[in-house]
Simulated scan of single mutants.
Amino acid sequence: MPDPHSQRPARPATPPQPPAHDTAQHVLHPPADDTASRTAVPADTSWKQDRGPLDTSVPCEPRVYDYFLNGADNYRVDRLLAERLLKVAPWLRALAWVNRLHGLATVNYLARGGITQFLDLGCGLPRTHHEGGNTHEAAEQVASGVYTVYVDRDRSAYGHTRVLLEDRRQAVVREDITDVAALFAASAVRAFDYNRPIAVLLHDVLAWIDDVGAAQLLSGLQAWLPAGSVISLTHAVIDTHPDVMARLTEIYHEDDIAFRPRSRDTIARLLGPWPLLKPGLVPTSQWHSPNPHAALDPSLTTSCAAVAIHPSPAPRLPDDPAHPV
């Protein structure tokens, strides 16, 4: 549990809510073959043996992010790291909210288009309804029969998510998402209906994975996903504030956390051959347009967003999918 004696910022009295989306529908196609290839990658699995007490002497990224969102599931060591980061980039807390609300808005949009299966990779710590809710809740606002699988390697994220969210229509998996073979072998992941599309969420995830692991994860997902599926991504970028991002990287590394913001060109290459839904790869605050976040300080362009769609057979998507949710 978090240190009860330290002070935290008050949570907003009225949390931000995703705006309403249009009602255009996706026309989805079943896959021609349900034997998609699965790419095995080497991975460190020693973390699976950590059965002892949770180590609260070192920070971890999901709890730092929780602090940015005014959450309660963080420790003093996480807050100390977060405050050092905020001194360099005071907009990080606002950016965390932009990323969070973008994710919920995108899930809601995809559910309106007919996608009701979600694989939330690197899901982080769950949020309460007053904190904006979670993936399955955003989808269930507009669709029924939603099945969501949350995946995270971190003990805190896995434990809290399992306690709060796991039930018949949601499952929680503790796995290193770069171990694609183990990810696809998990019973909860195998329970997806492969005759229907799946939305994979990689929201603020790839910046914590090295280049080889990120490339293998994306190629493995693209080989495995059925037709009509999408990959939604947000990612920290270095293009607009390279000096600030370099300093943030140094601060994270001082606590043995590997942070890898990338250029937009590199992120586009990671998405590979899949076409991007309009408006393409753009600042996260501008993907859902018009969006109240679009007028925020240009500093918030240190994150970009894209939704890649399965190219064959290409689903018929709304003409203008960038409307707000």
Rank of each mutant, 00 (worst) to 15 (best):
F68P: 03
L69V: 13
V88D: 01
D66H: 05
C60F: 00
L85K: 07
P90L: 08
A94N: 09
G71K: 06
Y67K: 06
L85E: 07
Y67H: 13
D73V: 15
D55W: 05
A94P: 07
Y75S: 10
A94F: 03
R63D: 03
P62M: 09
E83N: 08
R93M: 11
A89I: 00
L92C: 02
V77P: 06
W91S: 12
A94H: 05
V58C: 07
A82L: 02
L69R: 09
K87V: 04
D73I: 11
P59S: 06
E83G: 08
L81G: 05
L80T: 14
F68H: 06
A94V: 10
V77Q: 10
V64E: 02
E83H: 14
G71A: 03
A94D: 00
E83Y: 13
L85W: 09
L92R: 11
A94G: 08
D78C: 03
R76H: 12
V77L: 09
N70D: 14
F68Q: 00
N70T: 13
R63N: 07
V77C: 08
V64Y: 06
L54Y: 15
F68N: 00
V88K: 14
A89D: 07
A89H: 11
A94M: 12
R84E: 14
A89F: 06
N74D: 02
Y65N: 01
L80D: 15
L92Y: 11
G71D: 00
R84H: 12
A82I: 01
D73Y: 09
R84D: 15
K87N: 11
L54A: 14
D55I: 02
R84P: 02
L92T: 15
A82P: 13
V77W: 02
A89G: 07
D66N: 10
V58D: 08
S57V: 04
D73R: 15
W91V: 09
L81M: 02
Y67R: 06
R76D: 12
R79S: 06
K87P: 00
D66P: 05
D66S: 12
P59K: 00
D55S: 14
D66Q: 13
N74G: 10
D66R: 13
V88A: 14
T56H: 04
V88S: 10
D73S: 04
R76L: 08
T56N: 11
E83M: 10
L86G: 06
